[in-house]
Design a binder for these strands. Structure first.
Lengths: 242, 242
DNA sequence: CCATGTCCTTCTCGATCTGAGATTAACTCG
DNA sequence: CGAGTTAATCTCAGATCGAGAAGGACATGG
């Protein structure tokens, strides 16, 4: 096997072309029913002023720890964030200065206060994903991969609950699917399925204090269950094929 | 953003701790109804004599190209191989000598001749996945991730066809699911679903020359269709939950 | 060449799930 | 109080599923 053998034969790390390993994070949340992604504004050339995904160098830590640390540095402490590895982007030339291999992460966050601008970013803000185009480097592609992963993953995992608070209504949960899919599931059928999938949501016995802003009864409050996967899955409506 | 800014400020690549980027490949095939993985025998210390996944350094190429090149070097030219990125493993200490970040790939191959031992590996062989334990470094974990990905992916994509020849019978296709899942789907229901899922398989009009080795009628031959995803999916039987 | 067993393919049938819409009742707002 | 909104439940026809069975076509061993 190449890797270890070459290392063994008195391999000198400095003799090889330098490769940098970074993490970039697609952090998604929902604000006012619209899916938003956390972006930072680049303060330096190249691509100064352009928006980019937050990220940075991997230090003496695991990749997961690097992603968590960068996220905390950009936005302050993040409670109840789901973080998972997305994919790795390493085309030569994706960064004009040297070979940079970036391990992309995907984070799902409940509604958070505006990010506290960390030490490195010139500015950080939540941006509707529809408006998040023209990002620096290949971050458009990374974001697209993150969105597709998110859209697929809420089908068969309970990760939609990571977008809402600890207690939530079924309507709020439906709002997550609407925002992520860009399409509203049938309310009655969604209700039936959310309740029938084992381990998805559990009844707290409590209800909201008020009805909806424009009327309607108080709704029951639920908590996330302990299921890791949803069976049967909540499939997207009108999945166009081919 | 950290990455580019630090690079910008007169970043010297050699000033940072060296990181090596490699690819490791989980190559799966089916032989005699049993799922096999391609392993190489390490010829050098450490872990000499241990089995490991084939892989090696990333050169001036994309990550995908690196995986394809390494695979070709280990096994000769591979026709009709499906290759996809699996996950990236980068824990400090996963290689005792230096920081190695490995981008793992997953390959699905039809029945192939025994691998041509490439220049680097001491030996290369197909090993039943059940027997592939105690691999070097963290390759047990990489293999486990690959197997889980494969088991999930044949549910909702037509990738099972990557394990069989260009023309195949429904029974052969069912054999793929049996080998990957370790459980045999109901033959009649599998037949019905395979035919009813749009774009999964297309009839060639031909049949096999002979019946099965132990009897039975000749079976019709099919080719892979053009669907990228299977809808509805072919779900695993008896998916134990919780 | 016949008996036996294999197994591809199709069919049956009840149980379950799904999508689309309707209904009821609780609630807010003006 | 009246009108509009919405959570929660119900209805129902069509699709899908799991499990089993039936019908042939075929190989093998006497």
């Amino acid at each position: 096997m190449v890797t270890e053998r070459e290392f063994l034969d008195g391999y000198d790390p400095r003799a090889y072309p330098a490769v940098a390993v970074t993490v970039d994070i697609v952090t998604l949340t929902i604000r006012d029913g619209v899916l938003h992604v956390l972006l930072v504004e680049r303060g330096e050339q190249p691509q100064a002023g352009r928006l980019a995904l937050p990220g940075g160098f991997v230090r003496e830590e695991t990749l997961d720890q690097a992603a968590l640390r960068e996220l905390a540095e950009e936005t302050g402490i993040l409670p109840r964030v789901h973080l998972e590895q997305l994919a790795t982007f390493g085309d030569p030339g994706r960064d004009p200065r040297m070979r940079v291999v970036s391990v992309a992460y995907l984070a799902f966050a409940p509604h958070l206060p505006d990010p506290i601008v960390g030490g490195d970013a010139a500015a950080a803000r939540w941006t509707p994903v529809e408006a998040a185009t023209g990002l620096a480097f290949d971050h458009d592609a990374i974001l697209a991969a993150g969105l597709e992963r998110a859209r697929a993953k809420i089908e068969y995992t309970p990760l939609a609950t990571a977008f809402v608070g600890e207690e939530f209504t079924i309507a709020q949960l439906r709002g997550v699917y609407t925002a992520v899919w860009g399409e509203e599931p049938h309310a009655g059928n969604f209700h039936r399925k959310a309740l029938s999938v084992p381990g998805f949501i559990t009844d707290t016995g409590a209800t909201t204090e008020r009805g909806g802003d424009r009327g309607g009864p108080r709704s029951k409050l639920y908590r996330a269950g302990d299921a890791r996967i949803l069976h049967p899955a909540l499939l997207r409506p009108a999945q166009e094929r081919r």
